[in-house]
Design a protein around this nucleic acid. Sequence first.
DNA 1: TATAAATCAACGAAATTGATTTATTGACAA
DNA 2: TTGTCAATAAATCAATTTCGTTGATTTATA
Lengths: 396, 396
Amino acid sequence: MPNTNPAATPQGVRSQNERQILWLIRRNGPMPRAALAQATGLSAQAVTNITRELIAAGLLDAGGERRRGKVGQPLLPLALAPEGALFLGLKVGRRVAELVLVDFAGRIRQIRLLPHAYPHPDAIRDFAIAGVAEILAGLTDAQHARLAGMGIASPFYLWDWAEEMQPWRGRDLRTELAEALDLPVWLENDGSCACGAEMMFGTDELPQDFLYFYIAHFAGGGVVLEGRLRLGPSRNAGAMGSYPVPGGRQVLDVASISVLEAALGGDLPLDDADWQVPPAIAREWLDESARVLSHAALGAVAVLDLPLVVIDGAMPAALRAALVQGTAASLAAMRHHGVTLPEVRAGTLGRRARTLGAAALPLGAGFLPGGSFSAPRPGRDGHETRDARPRSRDDR
Amino acid sequence: MPNTNPAATPQGVRSQNERQILWLIRRNGPMPRAALAQATGLSAQAVTNITRELIAAGLLDAGGERRRGKVGQPLLPLALAPEGALFLGLKVGRRVAELVLVDFAGRIRQIRLLPHAYPHPDAIRDFAIAGVAEILAGLTDAQHARLAGMGIASPFYLWDWAEEMQPWRGRDLRTELAEALDLPVWLENDGSCACGAEMMFGTDELPQDFLYFYIAHFAGGGVVLEGRLRLGPSRNAGAMGSYPVPGGRQVLDVASISVLEAALGGDLPLDDADWQVPPAIAREWLDESARVLSHAALGAVAVLDLPLVVIDGAMPAALRAALVQGTAASLAAMRHHGVTLPEVRAGTLGRRARTLGAAALPLGAGFLPGGSFSAPRPGRDGHETRDARPRSRDDR
DNA sequence: TATAAATCAACGAAATTGATTTATTGACAA
DNA sequence: TTGTCAATAAATCAATTTCGTTGATTTATA
C-alpha cells in the first residue's frame, strides 16, 4: 500500500531539492542557476539559496567561465566539484575482483585488481582491506573526510554456482568490511550495480524507465523505473539471469560468457581485446542468447511498459553490438500483440560497469533524489545512513 | 533518470501528509490521532492540525465512540467520511458495461448495467451520459459539489480482438465523456484498474509490492510497486495478457474466459453463480492456465522481486481457488534458481474489481499519497488535475 | 536602453518543541 | 467499600525554525 513512509518535512523538501539540482548537473553537465530554476520549477531565489549551500559544502563549483553571447547578464554555469565526495567500489567477479576510488564527478581515481581462479571471501576481504589502506594512505585529510563509504557489487547466491564457491555460504561481506574499515558499506547485486552505473554515469541520454542486461560470466541485469533503480524488498530485483525461458531453462543457462567458454572449450583472456572466437561458435552463441534475451525483454516490457532495453557486458564492443542487433531482430519476430516493442541499445560502460556501479551505491544513497537508488539501508550497524554525507547545513 | 520532478514545496509536504493520513485510515479503519502520529512519524501537533483541516473539509469524521480501557485520556478514532467525495466508475467489458457511483468509503451507491453482444463506443457513450444524468438527478447540491470525477476501465487495443470491435479504432472515450459530462475523466487499462481496486478496497492485508492477474473474457493484470500502481509511460504496464509464454503464445491465448467458452462451445451465463462447467473441461483449462500464469509470474518475480501474486477474475470463487492452487503448484515445479518463490493468493473483489477500480481512478488521483495511482493526468483539456478535489484549505 | 541573471528583503506555509489542558486508570487511606 | 489524588496518555496551545515564494533591486551584457 502507498508509502507507509517517513512523512514529509520542510527539511526533507530541502534535501530533495538539493539532490534534484545535483542530479540535473550530473546528467546535463554544468548548468547556470537560471536553467536549474527552469528545470526544477523552483524560484530563482530558491536556487540561489540551495546552490549557495552546495557551493559552501564543496559539492558544486562556480569557478567556470561566464557564458556570454545573449543579452542580459552572462550565465555562470555551476559544475560538480570532483572533490566534493569520494567513494570506494568493490566488484566481486568470477575471474577478477576490482577495487576503485571514484570521485564525485564519476572519474576513477585509483584502481586495483585481484585475479583469481574462483573468488574466495577471505581473499576478497583481505584484498579490500589492504587496498583501502593503501588508497587511504594516499589521501589528504580533507579528502579522507569526504569519503562517503564503500559499495560492493556481487552476484547473489554465489555458493549455488560451483563447488569452489561454497565458502560464500553464510558469509556477510558487507558487515565484515563495514566493521573492518569503519565505513558505511552497501552491497547490491552486481547486475543492479551495473544498471545503476549506466543510469548514473552512462554517456547516452536515457528514458525514465528501462530494462538492463549485463552479460558476463554470470548473466544479470537491473530495472530502472521512474528514474529510480528498482532493488526490490529482498534486494533481488533485476535478476535477469534467473528469468525463465522456454524449454524449462533460465537466461543464464544460455546467455553468459561461461556458456561461451564452454562452447570454446577453454577460458577467454581477461582482456576482451584479446578474445578470439571462431565465427561459427560466436554465431551459435549469439543466436541462442539473442533468443532468450528477447524473450525475457518482451516479458518485462509486458509487465512494466518499458520503452528501452539496454544490453551491456564484459565483452568486445563488436560482439555486444551483434547481440544487441540479434536481440532486436528476435524481438520483432516474436508474437507481441498488445505490446509496443522497445528500442534495444548497447550500454556505454562495458567492462567497468559493475565496478563503477559499486562505487555509485554510496553516491546514490547520499546524493540521488527520491531517497532512491538505494532504499534506506543500514550503513554499519542498523542505524540508517540515509544522509550519510557531508551535511550542507552544519556550516551555517 | 531520477525525477525531473515538480520540485518539492511546503504545500506539497502538506498535501502528501494529508494523503498519507487518509490512506492509513482507509487501510486500517478508524484511527485515533495518536496512532496516526505514530504511523506517520509526524508530531502530534502536526496530526492535530492536519486532521482539523480534513474534518473541516468533510473528509474525516470524528463522531465515533471514544475508546477507553487504558490509562490516560481515551482515544478518539477518526473515520473516513463516506460523503467526503463521490466518484463515478465506468467499466467497458466484453459482455457488459457497468456504471457505478462510489462514495469516499468505497461503497457502491448506485449501479447500472448495459449488456451487449459486443461493446460499441457509441452505445457505451450514450449509456454513460444517460446513466450519469440519472445519477446526478438523484444527488443533493452538496453531493454534486463533491463529485470528483469519472474513471473508465477499458481493455486497450479493443479493435484488435474482433471484427465487431473495429469501431473502437481511433475513438477517445475519455475525451468524449469529459466534454459531454464536463467532468474530469481518467481512463486506464481494465487490468490495472482491477489491481488498483484490490489495493484500495481489498479486504486482505497486502505487501507494498505485488503482481496481479485478472482473468475475464480478456486476461489482464497490474503491478503494484512500493505501494503504487505502476501504469507505465505509455499506460500499458501490467499487460499480463500479452505476456509471452512458451510455444510462441501469450497468456491470453490460454488463460481467459473466452478460451473456456470456446472449449465449452457456448457462452457462459453473465452471473457466474449459474456457471455449469464439466469437470473435464474445467480441469484442462485450469491446467493450461495455471501453467502460463506461473510462467508469467515467475518472470515478473525475476525482474521485480515480488513476494506476492494475486489472482482474481470474473469467475466462481471455487474456480478461482483452483486456479490459485494450480498456479502455486506449477510455480513450485518450475526451475527457479536464484529466485524466491512468491505467495500466490486469490483476490478479494471478484467480478466487481474492474468497475470499482474505475471509480478508484479519481479517488487515487485526488487522495492517494505519492501523487500516485494515477500519475499526473490531464483531467479534461490538458491542464493537470492533480489536485482535482475539494481543497481543504479554501475554507480557512 | 532593453534584457536577462542573480540577489536582497519581506512574507507565508508547515513542521517541530515544550508547556498546558483534559479525561481516564489505579492506588491508598478513611 | 468508597472517596480522593497521583500517574498516564491524548490532544491542544504558543513560540520557533526551516524553506519556499513574491516583488524590488543590482549587475553585466547586446
